[in-house]
Design a protein around this nucleic acid. Structure first.
Length: 427
DNA sequence: TCTGGGGTCCTAGGACCC
DNA sequence: TCTGGGGTCCTAGGACCC
């Protein structure tokens, strides 16, 4: 990478003051849709969304689809009404993860201070990289060039003195753009923007603020802190007040680890029988437990989420006496929490299972298994069975083997622990 | 064809301990 | 006997983000 003037794609046009603009926000353009179009060039130029499921919403929309007013999070039905010839593709998470890893690798060539926010965006702190790679604007242009040339994808990059201004900047130069907000321009940039652009202002908070006559960032900056506190609570008020004045002390955190791991699924048809719900909880427990084990962790808190047909949603969690990574312990806890709801004639749209409160497996003071929960079989080899299943799935895919395939039609309250059923039936 | 699936953070109330 | 404050842990719900 050279000076900004040498950078292709005209992104280096910026010749203003980027001193102190050491925070970059890199945001991939229409990421899932772009990955799909990259491998199916015949879709280029067409309205494409990724989403798919029967009761689903749009996860990503190509810019052609957006011309019809289609946006992510819109229901698939509404999207199809706006554009009947819309091309709808089912999500392929593995492909997006692989593309994401390639993007993150390019970013980490610039600096180790990369904080991914999701598969398709990341913050970078380039303060220490300018000697090697040039000014922030040149670094941003270089990243955009590499992503385009090596990955055939486009991204937009915001360059600013703080995280949230960098993120706003990337959003305002999409697609395939770059925007530098010099320190001296931050307030001019922020003031006219609607409050809804601020981190933490969603529909509810916006409504509260509008009632106070606060519509722009400038309005917010002029509002006394006490007034804000009464409207949105102490923590929210302090943060909004700071952001409105261009202040954001957050630094780039490259080592962020997950605090919870969850899986949930909206069923195409509501679940109405106990057996169906248990089967679904088992499937979700397997998925979550596998991901916990993948990381070499153990969890102490297990939770379920249930969304009823009327969209009312409840959660229940239980903190166990010790830590576990066992599918059966997580499943048992989930079913107990479900049973505790005492539902009579359930109509369940969505079920979810979550683990939190993690430790690294070896460092946990104790390993909680079914045994320590008082199960009948003190010699249970269930953790070994988990490992066998994980290994089989890693080789042959998730359909290869699992507790789910072991279960008879009428589900038992507890999983078999004698080992005699520990063979996949292959169905 | 109303409303996905992965998360984080905050609040409020209760239990419990000192 | 009445009254209490502070701290921590746990749970449920909800706002918010991508």
């Amino acid at each position: 990478m050279g000076r900004s003037a040498d950078i292709p794609r005209s992104a280096g046009d910026f010749d203003g003051d980027d001193a102190g603009c050491t925070l970059l926000h890199v945001d991939m353009d229409a990421f899932y849709a772009s990955v799909e179009i990259r491998r199916r060039p015949e879709l280029r130029g067409k309205p494409v969304v990724v989403g798919g499921s029967l009761r689903g919403v749009v996860a990503a929309a190509s810019y052609e689809a957006r011309r019809y007013g289609i946006r992510s999070a819109m229901s698939m039905g509404q999207a199809l009404r706006l554009c009947p010839r819309l091309i709808v593709l089912p999500p392929d998470r593995a492909a997006y993860s692989a593309a994401s890893a390639a993007v993150m690798a390019i970013l980490r060539d610039v600096t180790p201070l990369v904080e991914p926010l999701s598969l398709d965006e990341a913050f970078l702190d380039v303060a220490g990289a300018v000697r090697l790679h040039g000014r922030p604007a040149a670094i941003a242009a270089g990243i955009r060039a590499r992503v385009s040339e090596e990955l055939a994808l486009t991204c937009s990059v915001g360059v600013a003195p703080t995280k949230f201004v960098a993120k706003l900047a990337s959003a305002r130069c999409k697609p395939d753009g770059m925007l530098v907000i010099p320190a001296a321009e931050v307030l001019n940039f922020l003031n006219p923007l609607p409050v809804t652009v601020l981190w933490g202002v969603g529909a509810r908070t916006a409504e509260l603020l509008h009632r106070l006559g606060i519509r722009t960032v400038a309005d917010l900056a002029d509002t006394p802190l006490d007034t804000l506190r009464r409207a949105v609570g102490v923590a929210g008020a302090e943060q909004l007040h700071a952001l409105a004045h261009g202040l954001d002390p957050r630094t780039v955190q490259p080592g962020e680890v997950e605090k919870s791991i969850s899986a949930d699924h909206t069923n195409p048809v509501d679940l109405t029988t106990e057996a169906d719900v248990r089967r679904e909880l088992l499937r979700l427990a397997e998925e979550v437990a596998r991901r916990v084990r993948e990381r070499g962790w153990v969890a102490r808190t297990i939770g379920i989420k249930i969304r009823f047909a009327d969209f009312r949603t409840i959660t229940r969690v239980r903190t166990l006496p010790g830590w576990t990574d066992s599918t059966s312990t997580i499943y048992e806890t989930a079913t107990e929490l479900y049973a505790g709801l005492g539902l009579d004639q359930p109509r369940i749209r969505l079920a979810g299972v979550k683990c939190e409160n993690f430790r690294v497996a070896g460092e946990a003071p104790e390993q909680l298994t079914l045994d320590t929960l008082g199960a009948e079989d003190p010699g249970s080899s269930r953790p070994a069975a988990d490992q066998v299943i994980d290994a089989a799935r890693a080789r042959f895919g998730t359909a290869a083997m699992g507790y789910g395939t072991l279960l008879p039609t009428a589900l038992p309250t507890a999983l078999p622990t004698t080992g005699q059923n520990d063979r996949a039936t292959g169905d």
